[in-house]
């Protein structure tokens, strides 16, 4: 069954599915990070998302903003590295944008994700083509907005966003990193997919899994 809006329970299911996906891909994320970073992206994301799932289970939120802000704060305080502030800021800003509502339609969720991405850019100062999570999320949200303009619901928007994120993620492979630890490698960072773009794509994968099942 597809969905026209996303409820609080589904947002929670989305986060829980994201935890499962980063857990499943932990070794792969760490492997990607070993090639051009410092071999901790898999374990960091798993630690952070485990903390998130535990936190939202212990303190059930009654509105989207409270839920997403709590996710952001938990990530900031449990992950460390660059992923902590970046993913943390993503969810914090999403929460602020979403407001105290019990469900979000496709346009509202797209706007919240867009606000999250703007937070990531403010914190990490990344631009398109820097070989970062931006390169997966930005095209995904462009696709999302275009689909919503054509009348797509959450499930349909999530599905085109995932395809765009995957394309963006794969397109990071030949790029020379200009941000983060991978940038120290210069030309040698080319030929590897960016770990942050890979984990960000899993966010959209988790959303598709949640709203289309």
């Amino acid at each position: 069954m597809s969905t026209s809006t996303i409820s609080l329970d589904q947002l929670i299911a989305w986060l829980s599915r994201f935890r499962d996906l980063v857990t499943e891909k932990q070794s792969y994320l760490t492997e990607l990070d070993s090639a051009i970073g410092d071999a901790d992206h898999g374990s960091n994301m798993v630690r952070g998302m485990n903390a998130v799932v535990e936190k939202i289970g212990a303190e059930p939120a009654t509105a989207a903003d409270a839920l997403l802000k709590s996710v952001g704060m938990t990530l900031v305080t449990s992950v460390g590295g660059a992923s902590g502030p970046l993913y943390g800021t993503l969810f914090l800003r999403m929460g602020v944008n979403a407001g105290p509502v019990a469900e979000l339609d496709a346009a509202a969720l797209g706007a919240a994700l867009r606000a999250g991405l703007e937070g990531v850019v403010a914190r990490g100062k990344a631009e398109a083509g820097d070989k970062t999570m931006f390169d997966a999320i930005a095209p995904a949200l462009d696709a999302w907005d275009a689909a919503v303009a054509d009348g797509a619901d959450v499930a349909a928007a999530a599905s085109v966003a995932l395809a765009a994120a995957e394309k963006g993620r794969d397109a990071t492979e030949p790029l020379v990193a200009r941000k983060g630890r991978a940038s120290y490698l210069g030309e040698r960072s080319a030929g590897h997919i960016d770990p942050g773009a890979t984990s960000s794509t899993l966010l959209f994968q988790a959303l598709v899994d949640t709203v289309s099942s």
Binding site: D38, A39, D40, S43, N44, R47, V76, T77, S78, V79, G80, G81, A82, G84, P85
Partner: peptide, 11 residues
């Protein structure tokens, strides 16, 4: 002290 090779957190 952060995790191995991972920055500590603001808190």
């Amino acid at each position: 002290a952060g995790e191995v090779f991972t920055s500590p957190t603001p808190d």
